[in-house]
Write a protein that binds this DNA or RNA. Structure first.
Length: 743
RNA sequence: GGAUCCUUAGCUCAGCCGGUUAGAGCGUCCGGUUUACAUCCGGAAGGUCGUAGGUUCGAGUCCUACAGGAUCCACCA
């Protein structure tokens, strides 16, 4: 054995041996234990967060496998709809192209090919980390059978009356070209000048003067003495685009102290104002959209048509000022605005018909399951947060205006819905845009279908929900599902579509869901209620939420800060075991952890310590055996003193085994890692081996102790322990991964 | 505005179903190399466990208030 442990000499070979041995596949018999891996983005290389989940899940897979359970750790990758399309579009842009140059079928295939090129990387890297997942069961979220089940789920929801189509204001990113759910909008504080402008007989304060062309009413507080006489009246407003008549309505939501106590109502471009419209439907006209989905003012904005929102604001402010209609401007006013979590563009509230899922009936069951402890959350305070969300969740907008995803199984009959708006590339690759009724006069439906880019059906359009085309004459909705809609069914879908027919029966509900706390609401919550809806059972019994990995100073890692720890580089430098141990030791559920080079180096030292302790114990044991064979027992090792010490050693050792087993069972892997580290180094090495040198503990007891420690250490540092294991005289399992956990 | 979490050695953090002298890693200081490991060993310094109350025979560990910090959520134009 070398003087030092050199990970790169062992890791790849050991991993291949594990794979060949078939231990990653669940045994035919034994108590079932299952973990569904959170599918990483198929298109992204591994980052430190992945290394964290791989380590934690692998610890439990190995631990339970060694305890004799039939362990399934099922891996997969995610198509990551918006993320991936966003990245792909950036590439297109570099080539001077955009998604509008392609029909949706072609674009989809292009992204598919692009993702396929990269999809092996993440899996290869997880293997580098030692992940003992069953790769033969790997699933991709756009696999045919997965798509079929997701679509079926939507149909079931629809048949159960839990799906509806509605025009509401959506969170629309004009840069990504799609709507988002509320959860995907980030709120940031910005300076938004507050403009006090003259408005008919009033002065009102607004941060969005450019939306004035979409105003449909004026609103005051019902008890506001200043404006009593106007309530219910129609007033005339002379603005930049001629004269308008507008009704003054009263609502308690108006804050009399803010601005002048007068609010303009713009239902097409403000969430509050849309609610006001719904509440005062009888008094005010419907939403009047003046900003298009391209983020530019439309024809209703008169001479401002074609300007981007911010340009229009500038122009409108300038014109109002010129005409003396601007009373004052508060330039320091700050408010929070929504921005796209992906690209940071200001979210534009726009009216759009979308498909919504009614969540109340679903969340009720999840709340009950939580209350009855059918599922237990590990992570500081996150059970409360989950509970709070389940109680207050809004209906779920699942429509996305992107190509990279699962298309909604919604069909519009072309003849019967002539007002459906269609964009498509004709045979000459020219983009044509019009209502389908008009288009059919000049084009065949087949040509439209072939070049289809997107369609937008009015709310009144009749549709059919069907997994396959209901007939020749139908056009399929071009919206795709929110990625989280398919992810929400992941534990169920992966097991149901498995090529092993028993998997669902054997492994559902799964034993453990392990993921980062930042997707508790996006993913875990939705899996919980969808799993309950589809199977009547919780999808997982335990949820372990790990924290974010930060740099040694506690700063978030980011490319711009240049403090990103690349797991692959770390593995090359210190070995996979060192990285794994550094990530997990002293970590606590739900809390962020700082990891720096020092931490990893410290754990590299542990792997070397394991190696060298083994080196000593093995040599010492061999020497002892030789003495035995020659019939000359070394004097120091004989006598009752040594036997007595051996007994004490064994007793303490079994105490250590119990402690670590208990900590792992209690979902405290960070503490278990620390315990095993401490007892191995400071007890086994510093005390027991030293005592052996003085002849107080026998080499035989020591080598038995080493075997136990290798097993205890194995889930945390699988490579070095396996490397040492093969240096030991063969007494039990050939591979440590298949050995039995000490009792 | 609401919610959650945190405050323990110079730094980063464990420990908390309450129970003898409060731990680790890194760092600092002193000493050590006749072969398991200098990626090491032995030893030392360093903490009134945020503040103030309370519960208790006994509290970093439970409760309350306060202070400071972090994060998440929220429609004041």
């Amino acid at each position: 054995m070398d003087k030092r442990y050199q990970p790169d000499l062992f890791e790849d070979k050991i991993y291949r041996d594990w794979e060949k041995s078939g231990t990653f596949t669940p045994k035919a018999k034994g108590e079932a234990y299952s973990i569904i891996m959170p599918p990483p983005n198929a298109n992204d290389p591994l980052h430190i967060g992945h290394a964290c989940f791989v380590t934690l899940e692998d610890i439990y897979a190995r631990f339970e496998r060694m305890r004799g359970k039939s362990v399934l750790w099922l891996p997969g990758t995610d198509h990551a709809g918006i993320e991936t399309q966003y990245v792909f579009e950036k590439r297109l842009k570099k080539e001077g192209k955009s998604r509008f140059d392609f029909d949706r079928g072609t674009l989809y295939r292009m992204i598919w090919d692009y993702v396929e090129e990269n999809s092996g990387t993440a899996i290869k890297q997880m293997k580098k980390l030692g992940a003992s997942a069953d790769w033969s069961r790997t699933k991709f979220t756009l696999d045919k059978d997965v798509v079929a089940m997701v679509v079926d789920t939507f149909k079931k929801l629809y048949d159960d009356g839990l799906v509806y189509r509605e025009v509401r204001l959506v969170n629309y990113c004009t840069s990504c070209g799609t709507a988002f759910s509320n959860l995907e909008v980030k709120h940031v504080e910005r300076v938004s000048p507050l403009y006090y402008m003259k408005y008919g007989p009033f002065t009102l304060a607004t941060t969005r003067p450019e939306t004035k062309f979409g105003d449909t009413a004026i609103e005051v507080h019902p008890d506001d003495k200043r404006y009593q006489k106007w309530i219910g009246q129609e007033v005339e407003v002379k603005g930049l685009a001629g004269k308008f008549k507008m009704r003054v309505i009263a609502d308690r939501r108006v804050d009399r102290k803010f601005g002048t106590g007068v609010v303009k109502v713009t239902p097409a471009h403000d969430f509050n104002d849309f609610d006001v419209y719904l509440k005062h439907k009888k008094e005010v006209p419907g939403p009047k959209q003046v900003i298009g989905f391209d983020g530019r003012m439309n024809q209703l904005a008169g001479k401002y048509q074609g300007l981007k929102v911010m340009e229009a604001r500038k122009a409108v402010v300038a014109d109002l000022t010129k005409r003396g209609l601007m009373e004052k401007v508060d330039e320091t006013y700050r408010n929070t605005i929504g921005v796209c979590y992906r690209c940071g563009t200001t979210i534009e509230p726009l009216p759009l018909p979308q498909f919504y899922i009614k969540v109340k009936p679903l969340t009720q069951r999840a709340l009950r399951a939580l209350k009855e402890k059918k599922v237990k959350i590990f992570g500081a305070g996150y059970d409360k947060i989950l509970n709070h969300w389940l109680k207050s969740l809004d209906d779920w907008n699942v429509s996305r205006q992107i190509v990279w995803g699962i298309r909604l199984p919604i069909w519009y009959e072309a003849d019967k819905n002539p007002e459906v708006e269609v964009k498509f590339l004709n045979k000459d690759k020219k983009l044509i845009s019009d209502q389908v009724g008009e288009l059919l006069k000049n084009y065949s439906l087949a040509e439209i279908k072939r070049g289809l880019q997107s369609l937008r059906a009015p709310l009144t359009a009749k549709f059919t929900v069907s997994p396959t085309s209901p007939g020749e004459n139908f056009l399929q909705e071009t919206d795709t599902f929110d990625t989280w809609f398919s992810s929400s069914q992941w534990p169920l879908v992966t097991l149901k579509t498995s090529r092993f027919k028993d998997d669902f029966k054997r492994f559902y509900p799964t034993s453990l869901m392990e993921t980062a706390y930042d997707i508790l609401i996006f993913w875990v919550m939705r899996m919980l209620f969808m799993g309950l809806y589809l199977t009547g059972k919780v999808p997982f019994e335990k949820v372990y939420l790990h924290g974010l990995i930060r740099d040694e100073k506690g700063q978030k890692m980011s490319k711009s800060k240049g403090n990103v720890v690349d797991p692959v580089e770390v593995i090359q430098k210190y070995g996979a075991d060192a990285l794994r141990m550094a990530l997990v030791i002293r970590s606590t559920a739900g809390r962020d952890k700082n990891v720096g080079d020092d931490d990893i180096r410290g754990m590299r030292n542990l792997t070397n310590k394991i190696w060298n302790a083994a080196r000593f114990v093995i040599v010492s044991n061999n020497t002892h055996s030789e003495h035995s064979r020659s019939g000359v027992a070394p004097a120091a090792h004989s006598g009752s003193d040594s036997d007595l010490k051996d007994e004490k050693f064994k007793k303490e050792l079994s105490g250590v085994v119990k402690q670590i087993t208990d900590q792992l069972e209690a979902m405290k892997p960070g503490l278990a890692a620390e315990t095993v580290y401490f007892y191995f180094w400071h007890w086994f090495c510093d005390e027991c081996i030293e005592q052996n040198k003085q002849g107080k503990i026998s080499p035989l007891a020591l080598i038995k102790g080493l075997r136990v420690f290798l097993k205890l250490l194995h889930p945390f540092v699988p490579f070095v322990t396996e490397a040492v294991w093969r240096q030991l005289p063969k007494t039990e399992e050939k591979l440590l991964i298949g050995a039995q956990w000490p009792a």
